[in-house]
Simulated assay, not measured.
Amino acid sequence: MNGARVEFRGLRRTFGATVALDGLDLTVEPGTLIALLGPSGCGKTTALRCVAGFEHPDAGAVLLDGKDITRVPANRRDAGMVFQSYSLFPNLNVYDNVAFGLRVRKVPAAKRRARAAELLELVGLPAHGERYPHQLSGGQQQRVALARALALEPRVLLLDEPLSALDAKVRVALREEIRRLQLSLGITTIFVTHDQEEALSVADQVAVLRSGRLEQVGAPAEVYDRPATPFVAEFVGTMNRLPGRLDGQEVEVAGQRLPVHGETPGTPEVDVLVRPETVLVTAAYDGEAVVLTSSFRGASVRLLLRTDDGTELLADLPAHDAARLAPGQRAGFRLVQRPVLVGPRTTVSPPATATAAAD
């Protein structure tokens, strides 16, 4: 399969007074897996449905390899879609579910069955062709739905939160399988999810949406390490908010001066956004904080600290470094010297756990 280039140009879609997409501009390069990431109601599924042809924008255009397909019927678009709910036909066996689109296109029966068998081999279900959907697990049903979407050899694969109904272990295994298939087939894939870990682990590019607008698009490491806005910083990963004071292009926070990245508010009193892995903690009887909780995570430990001024923050440490930091102990901390984002000072700084998105 050869992946297609997909472009969203000034896409706008409203539902009554609700604005689902507000001038979305985004390009997906051929053969790329891009994750549309954002909170519920941000417009990511609406954008996907506009590519599929199930929604028609009020303004703007969807282009496939430079061709405007905005008003092309869904059945004439070169796209396959996998839904969150699988949407398998309960009265058809697995072979017939996979080959359904081929039957609609009047492909001869022998070719349909051969193609279905090929795809079931591809998704790891070669012996399940005669079974019916109710005889399959959730993960197996989703594999069948994926095979059905690939049967017509689409140039764009659309995945609408396809793993959200699965348990954690199956979800991780299947997302890795989807990534393997996408790389081997070279198919352009748009993956909608609200799970930041899922987006970061499988995508070439992550596009973060908020209220129908694109906040940032970039490689997973770029979006995580260099978020463009405070919203992206807090939605993608876990983030602490610490009180600070601006001084030119630096901010004073926790007894340190750190360079500021990005825009700054008009007031000197700000909140400084700091990731837990950039908080370095040591046991100290005269330290400025106390350990409230310690959560073992295998190779790492997450500590919740409270400073003497009442600010709470999270810190992620290697497990061997956290051995002496039990709840109730005093500790000192400092921040890694790196550029930080700042935002307007909140009335009351929330506990660090309150700003963790899908953590």
Results as ranks from 00 to 15, higher is better:
5 R>N: 08
10 G>E: 07
11 L>A: 03
17 A>L: 08
20 A>K: 04
21 L>N: 14
25 D>A: 09
35 A>T: 00
38 G>I: 03
39 P>T: 03
41 G>P: 04
43 G>A: 03
46 T>Y: 01
47 A>T: 06
48 L>D: 01
49 R>K: 12
52 A>E: 00
53 G>E: 05
57 P>W: 01
61 A>Y: 06
67 K>Q: 10
72 V>M: 14
72 V>P: 05
73 P>I: 06
74 A>G: 05
84 Q>G: 12
84 Q>C: 07
90 P>D: 01
94 V>M: 06
97 N>A: 02
102 L>N: 09
104 V>Y: 04
108 P>S: 04
110 A>Q: 13
111 K>P: 01
112 R>V: 10
112 R>M: 01
114 A>W: 15
116 A>Q: 13
119 L>I: 14
120 L>F: 04
120 L>R: 01
124 G>P: 07
127 A>V: 11
128 H>K: 15
128 H>T: 11
134 H>E: 08
135 Q>K: 09
138 G>K: 02
140 Q>Y: 13
140 Q>H: 06
144 V>P: 04
147 A>S: 07
151 A>F: 13
152 L>K: 13
154 P>R: 13
154 P>H: 14
158 L>C: 10
159 L>F: 12
166 L>H: 03
172 V>A: 07
175 R>P: 02
178 I>E: 00
179 R>V: 10
181 L>M: 09
182 Q>P: 01
183 L>A: 08
185 L>Q: 09
190 I>P: 00
193 T>V: 10
194 H>N: 13
194 H>V: 15
206 V>D: 03
208 V>P: 02
209 L>Y: 06
210 R>E: 02
211 S>G: 01
213 R>T: 15
214 L>I: 03
214 L>Y: 04
215 E>L: 03
217 V>Q: 02
217 V>T: 04
222 E>Y: 14
229 T>W: 12
230 P>I: 00
234 E>G: 08
235 F>D: 01
238 T>R: 08
241 R>E: 05
242 L>C: 00
250 E>H: 05
257 R>M: 03
259 P>T: 02
260 V>G: 02
262 G>V: 06
264 T>F: 06
265 P>D: 08
270 V>K: 00
272 V>F: 08
285 Y>I: 12
291 V>E: 07
293 T>K: 09
293 T>C: 14
293 T>F: 15
306 R>D: 04
306 R>K: 13
307 T>L: 06
309 D>M: 05
310 G>P: 08
312 E>S: 04
314 L>Q: 14
319 A>T: 11
323 A>W: 02
325 L>A: 01
326 A>K: 11
327 P>S: 11
332 G>W: 06
333 F>R: 02
333 F>G: 05
334 R>E: 01
337 Q>N: 12
337 Q>C: 08
338 R>M: 15
339 P>Q: 05
343 G>N: 12
344 P>I: 07
344 P>D: 12
345 R>M: 08
352 A>C: 04
353 T>E: 15
353 T>W: 14
353 T>R: 14
354 A>L: 12
356 A>P: 00
359 D>V: 15
